[in-house]
Amino acid sequence: MTTPDFVLELREHIGHAPLWLTGITAVVLRGDEVLLVRRADTLEWSPVTGIIDPGEEPADAAVREVREEADVVVKAVRLVWAHVLEPITYDNGDAAQYLDLVFACNWLNGDPAPADGENLEAAWWPLAELPPLSESCERRIRLAAESFGPALFTQLLPVALPEVV
């Protein structure tokens, strides 16, 4: 994954210390197909993911990342899930944790191709015949393809009900 300039500038000051970053997952749907990219760093298939730039609207980041990574034009149509990913330490020692905002996106035009060097392949996959994916990626795709209600918010803490007097 190409590291955004603002993250590189932060790293100059904090070294490898953990960073809290906001990212997006863009689940691009075209009928009964989903756009997947095969990442150059892990060789795994996944929806398009990326980091939101400072001041950038999250939905705009989803659209931008899909264009940059897969050369496809999309419209972000809804937020389907907001959740926190597990902490990660990269090979160079940098630590980070992400708030991931998952967007369902509709394809507008373009043929998928790995456009910026972050991915080895970009292709449409039938929703019924996906390649091996992480459990998290499968859930993101399923939520984008099957849910049409409000966004899902992961909540791990029990909700305390107010005392009735």
Score class of each variant (00 low, 15 high):
2 T>A: 11
2 T>R: 13
2 T>M: 08
3 T>C: 12
7 V>L: 06
8 L>H: 13
12 E>S: 11
13 H>C: 00
14 I>D: 02
15 G>C: 10
18 P>I: 10
20 W>Y: 15
20 W>S: 15
28 V>A: 06
29 L>Y: 01
30 R>W: 00
30 R>V: 01
32 D>E: 13
40 A>S: 10
42 T>N: 13
43 L>D: 09
45 W>V: 13
45 W>H: 12
46 S>G: 11
46 S>W: 03
51 I>N: 04
52 I>D: 01
54 P>M: 11
58 P>W: 00
59 A>E: 06
61 A>S: 14
62 A>W: 14
63 V>P: 02
65 E>L: 15
67 R>H: 09
69 E>W: 07
69 E>A: 15
72 V>H: 07
74 V>F: 01
75 K>W: 01
75 K>P: 00
76 A>D: 00
77 V>M: 06
77 V>G: 05
78 R>P: 07
79 L>V: 04
80 V>P: 07
80 V>D: 07
83 H>W: 12
83 H>C: 14
85 L>R: 13
86 E>M: 08
86 E>Q: 07
86 E>R: 11
87 P>D: 00
90 Y>G: 01
90 Y>C: 00
91 D>T: 08
95 A>T: 01
97 Q>H: 06
97 Q>S: 09
103 F>C: 04
104 A>L: 03
108 L>F: 02
109 N>D: 09
111 D>W: 03
111 D>F: 05
112 P>Y: 00
113 A>T: 14
113 A>R: 15
115 A>W: 01
116 D>A: 04
117 G>V: 08
121 E>P: 05
122 A>F: 05
123 A>M: 01
124 W>N: 04
127 L>Y: 04
127 L>K: 02
127 L>T: 02
131 P>W: 07
132 P>A: 10
135 E>C: 04
138 E>N: 12
138 E>W: 08
140 R>D: 10
140 R>T: 03
141 I>V: 13
145 A>K: 00
146 E>A: 03
146 E>H: 02
147 S>M: 06
148 F>P: 02
148 F>A: 10
149 G>R: 05
152 L>D: 11
156 L>C: 06
157 L>P: 03
158 P>R: 07
158 P>K: 07
158 P>S: 04
159 V>P: 14
159 V>D: 15
160 A>S: 04
161 L>E: 14
162 P>Q: 15
162 P>A: 14
163 E>L: 15
163 E>G: 11
163 E>H: 14
